[in-house]
Nucleic acid binder design. Structure first.
Lengths: 111, 111
DNA sequence: CGCCTATACCTAGAGAATCTAGGCAAAGTA
DNA sequence: TACTTTGCCTAGATTCTCTAGGTATAGGCG
């Protein structure tokens, strides 16, 4: 049973901050958006996403608001707080650092 | 308490396969080598590294041999098995896939 | 010699992230 | 009516990492 990649671990928060930094979204939408944009690479389970959103909300990086869609359906929209925006910048920087570090070890296969 | 980056999680196996694909090494050496090459970014704790090595050995990706250094000190050298080399190729490919997927979400900040 | 640091291996238990595998309910569709 | 999709949620198991130890040898210094 080959897992997609263990590398995904730990990237969730960064992905969520990035997405929500572009526009507020609700949980279900986030799952689909991540899958669409990554051409099917990211397929978050609800059991992963919702706890993650709650975690970020609890940390003050996100706030949430219920909205009623045209059909009467309830959706919980998340958007970044100021603290969240600060963290987003931080996370992006961390991602670049991580990339640089990985590249010092995982050299590309030379032809 | 700001952690370096949660991103590191899940990259350990790939890093170890990569390193040991270049030359056999022993645990203590691996920790120093990772830190040196990454200019201090990777600072693995022994409580992380040794269980990871044992895990990979148990999976048949690594084998280990005891050697006695000049001073009489015992060192356990790990090197890749055939299965390990196959997995290394796989891991490198996964890393590139992961990179590509991340880039679809984490767009670089435009000036 | 005695003491300290660096080397070199190891493990148990706690903490945290993810997945599995459900549950509940409303809206759309056949 | 029945089924699928949407949309929220959680409890428990699994897995990875870290904390915080333990053991032992080698080498330097006073």
């Amino acid at each position: 049973m080959v897992k997609r990649s263990e590398l995904i671990k730990g990237s969730t928060d960064s992905l969520l901050l990035c997405l929500l930094g572009q526009q507020p979204m609700y949980g279900y939408q986030i799952i689909r958006e991540l899958e669409d944009r990554s051409q099917g690479y990211f397929r978050y389970k609800e059991g992963t996403l919702y706890p993650a959103l709650h975690r970020l909300e609890k940390s003050g990086l996100l706030t949430a608001q219920w909205h009623t869609a045209s059909g009467g359906r309830q959706r919980r929209y998340y958007h970044l707080t100021e603290k969240g925006r600060t963290m987003l910048v931080e996370r992006r920087s961390q991602w670049l650092d991580f990339l640089a570090a990985m590249n010092t070890i995982i050299q590309p296969v030379s032809a």
